[in-house]
Design a protein around this nucleic acid. Structure first.
Length: 297
DNA sequence: AACCGACCCAACCGCCATCAC
DNA sequence: GGTGATGGCGGTTGGGTCGGT
């Protein structure tokens, strides 16, 4: 059971389509006070709407930077590429299409692209049929889930569930080549005996081969903001057609309109994903990383 | 003109993650 | 660590519109 809805139906709140007056109240309020604190906003702005509804209305409709309608052929192609890569991660896809909202892209996919693709590939059963099949045959469902897991190895879809990871258990053999090739920021390192070790000391030990076999299975606290490979990856400019081609190798430059989070290690952001700097960080690396024997804690 | 089904899309719902206490 | 509040996300719904008969 989940939580109760944020606004119950008997609170006397308005529902359904928004009126022009409501839009104006919301727009004026957000322009004056900024986004956020949506629940309080409804009272302060004098709106009889639940906060969630206000947030959605603002994000999907009232925001000044929103493009509406007329999704271009280029945008459609980009959506297809991104969907192929990310699956139904509409917010991530929308993040790569300036002015487009996740809701709009989701609707566009469901009403246009999805059907188009289904026409092109009539063998793929539709969603309803799939669900009915699952309901009538739970074993087949389990099997499907199993094959899905197995197929993750070969799938091009990157599962991007936004989960913060601050700790990873890692063995010396695994860490050593990483340290040798990439700068990794480490807050502190805990050895098996629970004694903390200064990272610089550890790295220099690696460099001088002073770490012995009994130092295996270290636990690191990464500064994940700096170890930002996945966010770097997701911030790539996929609008460059070459981005997803070239067989598993990323060859795009950064989208300069959407710079990546700060990195202390990379001086020139725009060159981070250039051919040279990407050496060793291609799709195969992602696969290797996710399939590695790290114990993501 | 009236009916009906298909389509579109704004809005809603339920769940999850995170944060503050 | 537990709990409630809040924001964010993806899936789904339902009302309006359009086109065909």
């Amino acid at each position: 059971m989940g939580r109760n809805p944020c606004c119950s139906k008997d609170e006397g709140l308005n529902r359904g389509a928004w009126t022009g007056m409501e839009d104006k109240l919301l727009t004026d309020y957000v322009k004056t006070h900024g986004e956020g604190n949506w629940r309080n906003l409804t009272k302060r702005a004098g709106l009889k709407r639940c906060g969630k509804s206000c947030r959605l209305r603002w994000l999907n409709y009232l925001r000044p930077d929103i493009k509406r309608g007329n999704i271009t052929h280029d945008e459609e192609e980009l959506i297809i590429r991104l969907h192929n890569l990310l699956g139904n991660r509409w917010s991530l896809i929308a993040g790569r299409l300036p002015g487009r909202t996740d809701n709009e892209i989701k609707n566009y996919w469901n009403t246009n692209i999805g059907k188009k693709l289904q026409k092109d590939n009539p063998n793929s059963s539709n969603l309803k049929e799939k669900k009915e099949k699952e309901n009538s045959n739970p074993k087949a469902q389990q099997s499907d889930q199993h094959s899905f897991k197995m197929n993750m190895n070969s799938s091009s879809v990157v599962r991007t569930k936004a989960t913060r990871c601050t700790r990873v258990a890692i063995s010396q053999q695994q860490l050593k080549p990483m340290v040798a090739t990439r700068p990794i920021s480490v807050d502190h390192v805990i050895k098996d005996d629970n004694k903390s070790v200064e990272p610089e000391s550890l790295l220099s030990q690696f460099a001088s081969k002073e770490v012995h076999n009994d130092d295996l299975d270290l636990e690191l606290d990464f500064k994940m903001d700096e170890f930002n490979f996945f966010s770097d990856f997701l911030n790539m400019d996929f609008s460059q057609p070459a981005s997803l081609e070239n067989n598993n190798t990323i060859s795009s430059s950064y989208n300069k309109d959407h710079p990546s989070p700060k990195s202390d290690h990379i001086d020139d952001q725009t060159s981070l994903l250039s051919d040279d700097s990407l050496h060793g960080w291609d799709f195969q690396s992602i696969t290797n990383l996710t399939q590695s024997e790290f114990n993501w804690v």
